[in-house]
Nucleic acid binder design. Structure first.
Lengths: 141, 141
DNA sequence: CTTAAAGTCTCTAGTGACTAGAGGTTCAAG
DNA sequence: CTTGAACCTCTAGTCACTAGAGACTTTAAG
């Protein structure tokens, strides 16, 4: 294990593109690392841990402000974990709402596509349904 | 029924914000209407129909390039309906993929939140799990 | 030690589908 | 004729990056 990582090495270790790393630094999510004499970034294992935290939270759909809060709570006193829980709960609700919306979309799309029968009658409901909201279930947003 | 609608009237009839209507015109999805002497837009029922088509397709998650294609197919010869079907099928696949992804997220979030028990032991897994990918199922993107 | 290639630097602009606001003009009702 | 709501254009901001230009640094080979 080397003492320091270049941004390219960190990129591979954390599975995160190079410009994205710089962008997290810019936004204050990843601490600015030391630089070489030639001004290149050199990262430590702590940076790697932090970056993985960010990437994992992103993969779960948390947005950057939420991740910043979660980071601040990390390493704080016990009561703050309830705040982390609240953030996660709220996000879970969002995710469930999105799933419900997408399922409504899915149902309508299926109905629309199944209504088509251009093989035998050149009848296609897609364009009709899109043109007239009354023709569909009408339960989407 | 009036002969022409102002942009504000169209906005209410199609449940679409005024700047959004102008924006669709800018992008070529909604034809430019005639103007009054004072340069204000005046729309017909055809515009209303088109705008409702767009809004309905957007509500179903189609993106603007797809909507433009669907519009072009509308009123074309019969074979083009198969193309409309293809676009809808493709979109349906996207929607189903998103649902699957969100469900994976949901499962991991639930596991994370349920692991918490700060009431009795001040133990919270959220920050730990986010920090160490090995602690979760690890099946997300 | 030299050189070439790969990596890195900063900065700007673009993505999608809008939304918000500034500053000015026109319309419709009373 | 006045007033105020609605309308006009144009610019900039949203989110989380991604792409590219043009210049500089590092590293490995010879």
């Amino acid at each position: 294990m080397s003492e320091f990582y270049s941004i390219g090495q960190l990129s591979k270790l954390a599975d995160c593109k190079v410009p994205t790393i710089r962008w997290y630094e810019d936004k204050g999510l990843l601490p600015a690392p030391t630089r070489t004499e030639g001004n290149q970034r050199r990262y430590t294992d702590r940076h790697l841990t932090t970056l993985r935290f960010i990437r994992h939270a992103r993969a779960l759909g948390f947005d950057l402000p939420a991740i910043e809060k979660l980071q601040q709570l990390n390493g704080c006193c016990y009561g703050d974990h309830m705040e982390a829980d609240r953030i996660a709960q709220e996000h879970l609700d969002d995710v469930r709402n999105k799933i419900a919306q997408l399922k409504a979309m899915e149902a309508e799309l299926v109905a629309m596509i199944e209504g088509c029968d251009y093989e035998h009658s050149y009848k296609c409901r897609i364009l009709d349904v899109l043109g007239d909201h009354e023709l569909c279930g009408g339960e989407h947003k």
